[in-house]
Amino acid sequence: MKIAVYGREFSNTTLPFVQEVFDCLRKFDVELYVYEKFSQFISGRIYFPRKLWLFKDHHDIKGQVDVMLSLGGDGTMLDTVTLIRDSGIPVIGINFGRLGFLASINKGDIQSAIASLVNREYTIDSRDLLKVDSDRNVFGDENFALNDLTVHRRDNSAMMIIHAYLNGEFLNSYWADGLIVATPTGSTAYSLSCGGPIIFPRSENFLITPISPHNLNVRPVVISDSYTLSFELEGRSSKYLLSLDSRTEVIDCSLKFSVCKAAFQINLVRLNNESYLSTLRNKMLWGIDTRNY
């Protein structure tokens, strides 16, 4: 089996778990591809006696590997989206971070998870993405996101006004600190903390969630992902922040941009002992009375 490994820099407390991952991959005689910058970071820290293949971007692994393994939290998993793109390579994450909705494998389950992965005891959970188009091509060819798009204030305390249009028809002017457009996958991320609902995968929806809206009767809205959303900005500041997952660019208020469904999906690996519902219950602590702890 050919597995690609992606990761960020980590603290020394995480080192034993990363070593355990590489030990397990060696045990199962996996042909290993490691992200070049991550390989440089772990050099001298991680022991792996066999030859490693290095990759820099999606061109090096497209059609070459069976699975992408992400070592870190949900942010690290989101990074892999720009490496996988439309290749269809399934991705699975081992959670070295905090909550871990996307990177769902716990540190204590590394050996059993990799065994299941190598033995192909898993299913594929396909997730939709959103795509951003702008008149200045702000994000280049990385204009897609698995979780969400966010536009928000940059350098002052004044509210911004975001004029939103749905298939060209005026929807609303949001007086707020910002606005989130989330996919069902992203409904458990930033949008959730701003009062947005949880939307199940494959619901074929977008979620529009204002950030601290001035008018309290302005609530999150769920729409079909077959629609195209377009936006115009207004405010006292001349600069704002536009984010796609973990990538952020500074924009000015003259920028017009639109959001629609991307033409490809990302394939998440679900081991046979887990499901979206089990992950949701565990991460949200549903059914647990914290007063007893």
Rank of each mutant, 00 (worst) to 15 (best):
V269P: 05
S43N: 14
D155F: 12
T248H: 05
L271I: 01
E274G: 07
L52P: 14
Y227H: 15
N147Y: 06
S237Q: 14
V21P: 05
G100S: 09
R85F: 00
D135G: 01
M160Q: 14
G100D: 11
G168S: 04
A145W: 09
P213G: 09
I288V: 13
F144H: 07
Y276G: 07
S104T: 14
C24G: 04
A4V: 09
V65S: 04
S157Y: 14
I84T: 05
L78P: 00
K256Q: 13
L241Y: 10
T150V: 15
R291I: 00
S278E: 13
T80P: 13
S187Y: 03
D128W: 01
L285M: 12
S126R: 14
D29A: 10
F22T: 01
E36Q: 10
I266Q: 00
S11R: 07
I266N: 00
D155L: 12
F139Y: 03
C260Q: 11
I180D: 01
R202T: 11
Y47G: 05
S39N: 15
D79L: 06
P197F: 12
H163Q: 15
F101P: 11
L99D: 11
L78C: 03
F101I: 11
D225M: 04
K131Y: 12
G97I: 05
G168E: 05
N215C: 07
F231M: 07
N156V: 13
Y47T: 13
Y33E: 00
V222A: 04
D109G: 09
N119P: 11
D177S: 00
K37P: 10
L130F: 09
A263D: 14
P49A: 06
K107M: 15
S212G: 00
I162W: 03
R281V: 09
I61S: 03
F144I: 09
I161G: 13
S226K: 13
L83Y: 15
L83N: 06
V269L: 04
F28R: 00
V222P: 02
A158F: 15
P210L: 02
L71W: 02
T248D: 07
D177I: 04
L244E: 03
L83V: 08
Y47S: 14
S203T: 10
I89P: 03
E142T: 14
R219K: 13
V91H: 07
I223E: 02
R8L: 04
S193D: 07
N147W: 08
P90F: 08
S243F: 06
V132T: 10
F55E: 01
